[in-house]
Amino acid sequence: MKKIRKGFTLIEMVIVLFIISLLLLIMIPNLAAQKNRADEKSTEAFKTTLVTATDLYLENNPDKDVTDKGKKANVTTEELKAGGYITNSQVNRAKKIGINEKDNIFDHFKNLESENPS
């Protein structure tokens, strides 16, 4: 008579769990690094969005473009939100990266500042 096999043996289950744990050990550190890189890229893209919104604001408000000392104008996220250039969620995200509503955007992003012809 032939023996009918039902299910897996204990050793087969242990081997499968071992393989799964090895795969997880390889993947988890990689996933964390990928998430960090994605967060950094997302923050850089958001900074670019803020500078672009500020440039649009200055295009539509040329009287605010240059201060009397020749520096970039003082543009805040509060002004951009009031003008409809950014949303409330973007203001909240700016706060998360350290830009308060009364802060000058150009003080935070000197390296992203685009060339605005005066």
Rank of each mutant, 00 (worst) to 15 (best):
M1Y: 11
M1N: 12
K2D: 04
I4C: 01
R5H: 13
K6E: 15
K6W: 15
G7R: 05
E12K: 10
M13D: 12
M13E: 12
M13R: 14
V14H: 07
I15P: 02
I15Y: 12
I15H: 06
I15N: 07
L17K: 05
F18T: 13
I19D: 00
I19P: 00
I20M: 14
L23P: 00
L24T: 05
L24F: 06
L25T: 05
I26Y: 11
M27L: 14
P29W: 08
L31W: 05
A32Y: 07
A32S: 07
A32K: 12
A33P: 00
Q34S: 09
Q34I: 06
K35P: 04
K35I: 14
K35Q: 13
N36S: 15
R37T: 01
R37A: 08
A38K: 07
D39F: 05
D39Y: 02
E40I: 09
S42N: 14
S42Q: 14
T43I: 11
E44S: 12
E44G: 03
E44Q: 11
K47A: 13
K47P: 00
T48L: 07
T48A: 11
L50T: 00
V51W: 00
V51S: 08
T54Q: 02
D55F: 06
D55H: 04
L56D: 13
L56V: 12
Y57Q: 00
Y57R: 01
L58N: 00
N60R: 07
P62N: 05
P62D: 02
K64T: 02
D65L: 15
T67Y: 13
D68A: 10
D68W: 03
K69I: 09
K71C: 06
K71E: 13
K72F: 11
K72P: 12
N74E: 13
N74A: 04
N74M: 10
T76Y: 12
T76L: 08
T76N: 08
T77C: 09
T77D: 04
E78H: 05
K81D: 06
G83T: 05
G84H: 03
Y85K: 10
T87V: 06
T87E: 10
T87S: 15
T87P: 02
T87H: 04
N88G: 10
N88Q: 14
S89N: 10
Q90H: 11
Q90K: 09
N92M: 13
R93K: 15
R93H: 12
A94L: 03
A94V: 10
K95C: 06
K95F: 07
K96V: 09
K96C: 07
K96G: 10
K96W: 05
K96Q: 13
I97R: 06
I99P: 00
N100L: 14
D103C: 12
N104R: 07
I105V: 09
I105S: 03
D107N: 15
D107T: 09
K110G: 08
P117H: 11
